[in-house]
Amino acid sequence: MRRGLAPLFFNLSAFVAALAVAPYTAPLWRWLFPDLQRPLWDSRSWFALLAEHLALALGAALLAGLIGIGAGVLATRGAGQRLRPLFDALFALAQAVPPIAVIALALPLLGFGAAPTLLALVLYAVLPVLRAAIAGLEAVPPAVLDAARGTGMGRLRILAEVELPLALPVIGAGLRVALVLAIATTAVGAVAGAQCLGTPIVTGLANGNAAWVLQGAIFTAWLALIADRGLRWALAG
C-alpha cells in the first residue's frame, strides 16, 4: 500500500461510522437546539444521500473523462494540434468559473435537478483530464509510433491499441484528480435540487432549521476533506 493511503482509509472508515451513528444522535441535537421541533435530520437516510452524492460525482468524472480524453486525442493529432492552446484556455476558464455560478446560469436552460449539477461538475473537473491526456499521448515514444505505422496499422488501431494503452497510467492519474474534485464539489448541486450531502444544508436554510444545516455541513466538509486528501494521494501517484 502506498504511503498516505492508510490514514486516508482510516478517515474514510470514521466517516462511514459517523453516518451510521447519526440517526441515533437525536438527544444531542435536541440539547444543542432546544427551540427546534425536529432538530435531527431524518427526511432521508445519510447513506442514500451519500450514494446519490457519489453517483453524481462519478457521473461527472466519467463525462469529464470522455470529454477530456476526446479533446486530448484531437489536440495531439495533425491539424488538431493548433486547437491545443484553445482547448487549454477554454477548459481553464471553465474551471475558473465557480460551480455555483454555472448552476445559477444553467438553471433557466436545464431546469432543476441533476443536469445543471453535472454540467457544473464537468466544467470544473475536465481540465486535469485534458492535460493528463495530452501529456500521456505525447509521451508515447516516436519510435513506437513509427514502427506502428510502418507495420501497416491504421490510425484508429494505433490510437486504440498502442497510444491509449501506453498513455493510460498518466490519463488514470488525471481521472483520479477529476473524481476527487467532483466529490469535493458535488454538494453545491443541492442548490439545484439534486439529492446529495448538501441537501440538508439547503433544506435547513429554507426551513430555518440550523441543526440540519450544521449536520449537512459537517458531512459535506468531512467528505470534501477526505477527497482533498485523496487528491493529494492521486497527485503524488
Binding site: 515514444p141 519510435a143 509510433l145 513509427d146 514502427a147 506502428a148 510502418g150 507495420t151 498502442v162
Partner: peptide, 12 residues
C-alpha cells in the same frame, strides 16, 4: 518489413 534503429517494440 520495416526495422529501425530505435527498434520501436510495443512496450506493453
Amino acid at each position: 518489413g520495416y526495422v529501425i534503429q530505435s527498434v520501436g517494440l510495443f512496450p506493453h
